[in-house]
Amino acid sequence: MILSVQGVTKWFGEAPARTDALRNISFSVDHNEMLYIVGPSGSGKTTLLSVISGILRPNSGSVVVEGKDIWRLSADALADFRLHTLGFVFQDYHLFPRLTTLENIAVPLVLRRVPWEQGLEKARHVLEVVELADKAQLPPQRLSGGEQQRVAIARAIVSEPDLLVLDEPTASLDGDTGRRIVAFVRNHVLNERRAIIVVTHDDRIYEYASRIIHMEDGRIVDEPRPTA
């Protein structure tokens, strides 16, 4: 098991205006598993993703990643945890427009203090994996939406994280491109040492999930069920 979430609750504001975003959430994720967290807008998917990622502190409960309760870590240790254990693909990609595609991919390595040239070399290799080697020197805004998504994925996997987190990976893409991207992740990124969590409400990509958690009003309303 790579991730164990136990009794996580998260609310915003104070009573009587309090909003319960997560209510007693518990689940786990195994290696080589691609878990989908699905549900309508406002169901708490993104909040859960932020809690799992060590970005948003829960009000109660624990998040254990690779045997480590991340919310017991100091701020710097939490930053190190995100850097060394997690890979993020944000919904809006959040690529750096002032950097080339290659440099964008090397950012997590730079933060890991990998020497610049060495980081670029590794980024070049990953760029080949996502089949964008010819776009290395272009700024990301010159790429199509699907290409930008692949750059974001390349940036997320360049430091070989144990847990990959994808937030609405198909939200900005057309149906075919979205499916191709998720299929690529499933076939090329998922492996025995890694798990992937995908937050989405795009049912066209459900077929690639190992398991799906359905959320509503901050609760898991549908027990994890295996898919085809």
Partner: peptide, 16 residues
């Protein structure tokens, strides 16, 4: 701001 937030999310320390 969003780029710095992304760096922070990826794992940049505040000191960095």
């Amino acid at each position: 701001l969003e780029r710095f937030a992304a760096l922070k999310a990826i794992g940049a320390r505040s000191s960095e």
